[in-house]
């Protein structure tokens, strides 16, 4: 097997004394889409930010994030800038916060290309081509429009077009459709998926929606309180989820039980790396918790078609 494109190796991030990520080990291969799913405080955004070293000031990092075999943490300022601008692209939740509101769509799209020394005419041509590919019509007019003249869905497509322009090897998408309507969400994820496949770019897709992740990604990593608790192939999500937390997430969506029946809920509220217990991070809320869970940190075990970190699975593995 070839070396992964992106590799998180025992990544731990803390801000002062407070842990943010406790143990993230995950790899993304070239051209692969991995979904990072979790609730608030799980550290999924922080995991993605650590790839481009956009961590809050004063945070300390243990372990490593490697891109193409190179430790991102060891990059000098010039290399880091180059890495950010050419190798990875980011798509955030709110397109309105991503695009400078007073500049035109054309300016926004060509800025990075111009910075890389591409001529104005060539940059505009490529920007127009990229917009057309993400299904934006009337491209000439769009290039001279400003963000407020576009709907949220259209603007997010512009952001995706911009992300694709530099032909990145990896796209980091942090809840790219959460702010959009469902019908718009369908289009946007379809475009993201199609373009990514055409260019064989890898995708790290953050979402709180397991079903959405399963539809867009090849593999799914479920995060809780700063740790990855389960990794499994997207198409095995419903049949093969082993970790109690993943099962709880799957069971708590309305629609999994007949209308009017009670949803299977987990007590308590989502925890962060700071508030989670020392052993298994999910021990406080787990419906099948045992005494060992609270003290011992469960190792990642290979079970079924994926991996899960749960003591209760150790029987099954043996």
């Amino acid at each position: 097997m070839t070396a992964p494109l992106l590799e998180f190796d025992g990544l731990r991030v803390s801000l002062g004394e407070r842990p943010i990520l406790r143990d993230v080990t995950l790899s993304v291969h070239a051209g692969e889409a991995v979904g990072l799913v979790g609730e608030s405080g799980s550290g999924k955004s922080m995991t993605v930010k650590s790839v481009v070293r956009l961590l809050p000031g004063g945070s300390t990092v243990d372990g490593s994030v490697r891109f193409g075999g190179i430790d991102v943490g060891s990059l000098g300022p010039a290399d880091l800038r180059r890495f950010r601008s050419r190798d990875v692209a980011m798509v955030f939740q709110d397109p309105r916060a991503t695009v400078n509101p007073v500049r035109t769509i054309g300016d926004f799209l060509t800025e990075v290309l111009r910075d890389q020394g591409v001529g104005r005419a060539e940059a505009t041509r490529r920007a127009a081509g990229s917009l057309a590919e993400v299904g934006v019509d009337d491209v000439r007019r769009r290039l001279s429009q400003r963000p407020y003249e576009l709907s949220g869905g259209l603007l997010q497509r512009v952001v995706i077009a911009a992300a694709l322009l530099t032909e990145p090897k990896l796209i980091l998408a942090d809840e790219p459709t959460t702010a959009l309507d469902v019908t718009t969400q369908e289009e946007v994820v379809a475009i993201l998926n199609e373009q990514r496949r055409q260019r064989s770019a890898a995708l790290l897709f953050i979402t709180h929606d397991l079903e959405l992740a399963a539809a867009v990604c090849d593999r799914i990593a479920v995060m809780y309180a700063g740790e990855i608790v389960e990794i499994l192939p997207a198409d095995r999500l419903h049949d093969d989820a082993r970790h109690p937390y993943t099962k709880a997430l799957l069971g708590s969506r309305p629609g999994t039980v007949p209308p009017g029946e009670r949803l299977r809920t987990v007590p308590g509220t989502p925890q962060s790396a700071l508030t989670a217990p020392a052993g298994c991070v999910f021990a406080d809320r787990c419906p099948v918790v045992e005494s060992a869970c609270r003290d011992l940190h469960p190792p990642m075990l290979s079970v079924g078609s994926g991996f899960a970190a749960c003591h209760l699975l150790s029987e099954e593995v043996r």
């Binding site: 469902v182 289009e187 994820v189 379809a190 929606d209 539809a215």
Partner: peptide
């Protein structure tokens, strides 16, 4: 119909040919 079809669910494949908006 469009609204119902665009809800992510098991086996769902997002399609971009839904609308132009």
């Amino acid at each position: 119909q469009r609204l119902v079809a665009s809800v992510p669910r098991p086996g769902w494949v997002p399609s971009r040919a839904v609308s132009r908006g």
